[in-house]
């Protein structure tokens, strides 16, 4: 501890600044709306009121919407991993017609502001008859440009010799990918998994536009409904968002070593 005293001081100080908004958020969930909106504001709950948490369960079908979020997140993550592994490998190691332009197209996806394609994408989903379904929420987001980019970098960082050896043994490219490269890609895939889980967990506008019933809403949309035309119920909103965050935080704590190793492997060229 003494050896890195300076580092600890900086990191701890910075860390406290980073989490202080959360400390306030946690405290505020135990306040009444009246206390949160008091002038001047107070920092410590006077009554330790649990009403905010009760209100969350009373107002939105929290568990049902949590389940929707889990389903959407799992479907998205599994599909993203498969597609990004395939695409990333193809872009990194295979030679094919129009590879450069196709990769540029994938990068373009990163540059498009989210709401720009809202209406044409909605019309497409509607023509498939996918409104108000998991398919409508999940499928348009399956091609994840960030993920393909990241997996491409990852495969570029792996040594070529292993593939060459497998090829000499008579394996076709599919077998090389499946037996040799995919196992090596595990750290990269776990990193991508956690990033995808996070993004899909909190996505708001697209599911909101596609879903037409209270019971199909993911939690992110249900939470947003605590903002009304004439003001927000602050404690319930904060409590609900805290409850929604919790699974992700736990997942991160469990996965963090893998995430970091995963990104390290790619070298990110």
């Amino acid at each position: 501890m003494r050896k890195h005293l300076g580092a600890h001081l900086v990191l701890l100080g910075g860390g406290l600044i980073m989490v202080s908004p959360f400390v306030y958020q946690v405290l505020a969930t135990f306040m009444t709306n009246d206390q949160i909106t008091s002038v001047p504001p107070t920092l410590w709950p006077t009554e330790w009121d649990l009403g905010a948490y009760a209100a969350v369960f009373a107002q939105i079908p929290f568990l049902r919407q949590l389940l929707n979020t889990v389903v959407i997140t799992v479907l998205t993550t599994v599909a993203t991993l498969v597609l990004c592994a395939l695409g990333g490998y193809a872009f990194a190691r295979m030679r094919f017609y129009a590879k450069g332009p196709l990769f540029a197209l994938v990068l373009t996806m990163l540059m498009v502001p989210g709401t720009l394609l809202l209406i044409p994408q909605y019309q497409t989903v509607q023509s498939f008859g996918w409104l108000d379904s998991f398919a409508g929420i999940v499928v348009p987001g399956l091609v994840n440009a960030f993920g393909i980019f990241m997996m491409r970098q990852f495969f570029l960082g792996l040594p070529r010799e292993l593939e060459e050896a497998a090829r000499l043994d008579g394996a076709n490219p599919g077998q090389v990918f499946w037996h040799v490269m995919l196992p090596l890609a595990r750290p990269g895939l776990s990193a991508l998994a956690i990033l995808t889980v996070m993004a899909s967990w909190s996505s708001l506008l697209w599911p909101l536009v596609v879903v037409n019933s209270q019971d199909m809403m993911p939690l992110s949309v249900g939470l947003a409904s605590f903002t009304g035309e004439h003001g927000t119920q602050f404690p319930s909103m904060l409590a609900a968002s805290l409850m929604a965050m919790l699974p992700i935080v736990i997942l991160f704590l469990v996965m963090q070593r893998r995430v970091i190793e995963g990104i390290a492997f790619s070298g990110l060229k």
Binding site: L11, L12, G14, G15, L16, M18, V19, P21, F22, Y24, Q25, A28, M198, W201, S202, L204, S220, L223, A224, F226, T227, T232, F234, M237, L238, S241, L242, A244, M245, I248, V249, F252, L253, Q256, I260
Partner: peptide, 20 residues
């Protein structure tokens, strides 16, 4: 611990961010 502290904001809901 440090990684977790700095990572917390990444997973917050935007509406809660604005309120706080």
């Amino acid at each position: 611990l440090y990684r977790a502290l700095y990572f917390l904001p990444v997973v917050t809901m935007p509406v809660a961010v604005a309120i706080v």
